[in-house]
Design a protein around this nucleic acid. Structure first.
Lengths: 185, 185
DNA sequence: GTCTATACGATGATAGAC
DNA sequence: GTCTATCATCGTATAGAC
């Protein structure tokens, strides 16, 4: 197994998706052309197509990468020894929102409306977010509010649901606030 | 002033946007071609371009139409004699969500991320929604909770903010639940 | 005002050299 | 694996007849 080769391969793929994410944040998932991604990545069209079968695959990979970063942040809190209360959790998550990534995230929402694969990626990620929030809130209810594990689990679910909703709304809000450097089509 | 002519003109325009909205709901704002809208509307490309300067203008008009319908529903509650409490208000709004329109609405969010004009339309509509929610909640606080108008106004704002957030999140949820009849790009 | 037919541009994707 | 050059396709927008 050529481990080094695989690692380099993956490195190239992320190099491409990183460049793509920057382009998407400026022009959107659809209106970004492959040419722009080649310019941003410093690679060529041919090279990109050896790593991704077509543009749809690249968009999917980029969407996954964009959403995963949101989950990463939450993961650190979920694993924390002293879990924050729901308000504090929400505040920290909001504080961690990156305007650039928020734009791509909201674009992914729109695309998920129409593309089943992107939708699968998004639904999956949202479920993971909710699950992690629930874990975090559950731990808080047990450790700091003194609830029984059984009752904590029961009460954590609806709270997590609402924290998630407020977080998503804030994501939308952020994506609309940050200025666009791009003229209308 | 040829009033009848203007009325017919407006009628044609809505006929076009209605057809466009159905197409958008299936294929998205960008991947819907003018040809598909002509087919859906029963008109021709030439006809459409006499009513809208270009596709961007048509998308803007359609976006406005899609969002306005959400506001209409809320307007009836805001003007109601017996305003519902926040939970009930939210429940009714959610109950009134149309899956087809929810998809277009979320697509508009994504587009607003990139297109300043669409963003203006969206931000405007969101502000109107929040304002109407606030009015509704304010009336409820005064009439049914017996608060002073001054305090009601103060306390209504953050509640409206949260109801709005929960509503938007539910809109996203609905847009992801309804099945897509369209293959990936 | 509406249609048919078309020009023009843009873009996704590939072939073949290195 | 990567690049350059190219192709084929598709979609917007327009011109001109009715």
């Amino acid at each position: 197994m050529p481990r080094l080769t695989d690692a380099r391969k993956e490195l190239r793929r992320t190099q491409i998706t990183e460049a793509a994410l920057r382009c998407f944040s400026r022009k959107g998932l659809e209106r970004t052309s492959i040419a722009e991604i080649t310019a941003e990545s410093g690679l060529s069209a041919g090279s990109i197509y050896t790593h991704y079968r077509n543009k749809a695959e690249l968009v999917q990979a980029s969407a996954h990468a964009a959403l995963a970063k949101h989950a990463e942040l939450l993961g650190t809190y979920a694993a924390s020894q002293s879990p924050p209360d729901p308000d504090e959790l929400l505040a920290r998550l909001i504080d961690g929102i990156d305007p650039v990534k928020s734009r791509v995230a909201v674009q992914v929402w729109g695309e998920a409306t129409v593309d089943p694969i992107i939708r699968g990626v998004l639904v999956d990620m949202i479920d993971r977010l909710r699950s992690m929030m629930q874990t975090c809130i559950e731990a808080w209810l047990v450790k700091l509010e003194g609830l029984e594990p059984a009752e904590a689990r029961e009460r954590a679910a609806p709270i997590a649901q609402r924290v998630l909703a407020l977080y998503l709304a804030e994501l939308l809000h952020t994506s609309l606030q940050s200025p666009t450097e791009q003229a209308a089509s």
